[in-house]
Every structure is written in structure tokens, then in C-alpha cells.
């Protein structure tokens, strides 16, 4: 009897502990999701009221005047496009080497390690790097420097996804092509790339999502520009830099525009990552 009572008590204690921890886990999840709701809620609330056609058709205003975000939007689009144009080929080719040619190389394992470090390296350091190699020698801030800084962030993302996706392509496909006498470069370009296309595109989309909100590497490369400019040799406006400047200013209408810009960026980034996810979602049909 005494033993039974003791085990019962022990068991009740274990159950209590289990329930407590399970409750805590649920609470932690609600806590985590709560922030997402809170941040997006405030963003939509504050940003939506400032959203109008004017935002997309007018330049950034001086304090106290009405205006829009046309020049930073165009600047961001140009910088992003250039960065992707520079970074994607390098990233895809490097990923190709790692997955197709040097699968068991020393070089590959070193590059994979370094690439993973670059993937999570602080982006402000990338800004300092590009400042040292481009801005300081050229003597002025420029759109080109901003694009290169963003490209440095694009490359590791694309390398990683390209390698992963090419590794997923079944070897039987390559062997079948090789048995037909196709040279290696053909197998890579016409068979492996084709089979891994959705995955590689996903990588590029994720890279775009990543750089469209990056601010730190632009602060001292592309700097910012109050006026309309598409000259890549001059400082260039970008949405994140304008948000940074306007949000920290004391003027209410600048702060309003900063919220609107923040909403535009967030919607873009979230849309890109949802599209990317949909592209690689496991298909039901097998």
C-alpha cells in the first residue's frame, strides 16, 4: 500500500511537470507568433494610411512638404537588379563547380565552409569592405559600390542553394546522359540545370528578398540621394537608406513616409519568400 501510494505520488509529480512544460511550450509559441502579428499589424496600420499614388510618382520631399518615394524606389530597383546581375552568375557557377566537378575536392569543402561564414557574416562589415576597395580609391560614394556590396551578399545565398539543388538531381540522369556520349559541360547545362531549375530560381528569389531590406551595406557605399538620379557613378537613393534617414528625423511627415516605405519593403520581401517557398514546395503528385 505504502509503495503504491508513493509511486502514485511520484507519477502525479511527473505528470504535473509534463503538463507544466507542455503549457510553457504552447505559451512560447504564442509569444513568438505574437511578435509577428504585432509588428505586421503596426506596420500595416501606420504604413497603409500613408499609401497613395503620390508615393510612387513623386520625389522625396524636403521636410514639411508633400512628396513620395519615387527616387528611392527606382534606386532600390536598380541596385537590386545590378547586384543580382553581378552576383547570380558567380554564385551559380561556383555552386556548379561544388556539386558537379569537385564534389569530393578539398577546394569544395573549404569553399562550402567559407561560404557558410559569408552567409551569416555581419552585413555592415561587407559595407566597410566595399568602402575600402571601391569608395575610398574612387574618392566618392556611388551606385556601383552599393550594387557590388549587395552582390557580395547575393553570392553566398545563391552558391548555397545552387549546390544543394544540384546535389538533389538524381545521378541516374547524369549517367544516362553520359552513356549517350554527352560531354560533361552539356550534362551540367542541359540536364542538371534543367532538373534543378526551380530550386536555383528559388535561391535567386531568396537572395533578392534578403538584399531588398539590407541597409547597413548601403550606408557608406551608395549613401543616399535627395534628388532624382539614375547615375551609377553618383550617390544613389535607396528605400532602406531613406527609411533610416526619415525615421530618425524629427519631422512627422518624413516619419510617415518612412512607415510607408517600410510597408512597401516588407510586402515585397514577404511576397518574394512566399513565392520562393511555393516554387520548391513538395509536389503532391509523385
Amino acid at each position: 500500500m505504502a509503495i503504491a501510494a508513493r509511486t502514485n505520488k511520484l507519477y502525479a509529480g511527473r505528470r504535473r511537470r509534463n503538463n507544466l512544460m507542455m503549457g510553457l511550450a504552447c505559451a512560447a509559441t504564442l509569444f513568438g507568433l505574437g511578435w509577428l502579428v504585432l509588428i505586421l499589424g503596426v506596420l500595416v496600420w501606420e504604413g497603409f494610411s500613408g499609401l497613395s499614388l503620390q508615393v510612387f510618382t513623386e520625389m522625396t520631399p524636403p521636410p514639411g512638404a508633400a512628396g513620395g518615394l519615387l527616387n528611392p524606389i527606382i534606386g532600390s530597383l536598380m541596385l537590386t537588379a545590378l547586384a543580382v546581375a553581378i552576383g547570380t552568375p558567380i554564385g551559380v557557377l561556383a555552386g556548379t563547380y561544388m556539386a558537379e566537378y569537385g564534389r569530393h575536392d578539398r577546394l569544395t569543402s573549404v569553399v562550402r565552409f567559407i561560404n557558410d561564414i559569408l552567409l551569416s557574416a555581419p552585413s555592415i562589415v561587407v559595407g566597410l569592405f566595399v568602402y575600402e576597395v571601391m569608395v575610398a580609391p574612387m574618392g566618392h560614394f556611388s551606385g556601383w559600390a552599393g550594387a557590388v556590396a549587395l552582390a557580395v551578399i547575393v553570392i553566398p545565398v545563391v552558391v548555397r542553394t545552387t549546390e544543394d539543388m544540384l546535389l538533389l538531381v538524381p545521378n541516374a540522369l547524369r549517367e544516362a546522359a553520359a552513356a549517350l556520349g554527352l560531354p560533361r559541360a552539356y550534362i551540367v547545362r542541359r540536364i542538371a540545370y534543367r532538373a534543378a531549375r526551380a530550386g536555383i530560381v528559388t535561391g535567386i528569389l531568396l537572395a533578392i528578398a534578403r538584399i531588398s531590406g539590407e541597409t547597413a551595406p548601403l550606408l557608406f557605399t551608395a549613401l543616399n540621394n535627395q534628388f532624382w538620379s539614375t547615375n551609377l557613378n553618383a550617390p544613389m537613393a535607396s528605400l532602406p537608406a531613406v527609411i533610416f534617414q526619415f525615421a530618425l528625423s524629427p519631422y512627422a511627415d518624413w516619419q510617415k513616409l518612412a512607415w510607408t516605405g517600410a510597408l512597401i519593403i516588407t510586402v515585397t520581401v514577404l511576397a518574394l519568400s512566399i513565392i520562393a517557398r511555393a516554387l520548391t514546395a513538395p509536389r503532391k503528385t509523385t
Binding site: 513568438g32 507568433l33 511578435w35 509577428l36 504585432l38 509588428i39 503596426v42 506596420l43 501606420e46 528578398a209 531588398s212 531590406g213 539590407e214 541597409t215 532602406p240 527609411i243 533610416f244 525615421a247 530618425l248 516619419q255 518612412a258 512607415w259 517600410a262 519593403i265 516588407t266 520581401v269 514577404l270 519568400s273
Partner: peptide, 20 residues
Amino acid sequence: AIELLAGIPSIIYGIWGLFV
């Protein structure tokens, strides 16, 4: 949802942190 939280650019956290 958790991964979307990871995708929000850091400047959004900044502006939200400052004003809210």
C-alpha cells in the same frame, strides 16, 4: 510564420522598436 518572422528586414524591427 516563424520563418516569415526571420525574413522581415532588420530595418523594420528598428523602426518598430523606435516608435512602438
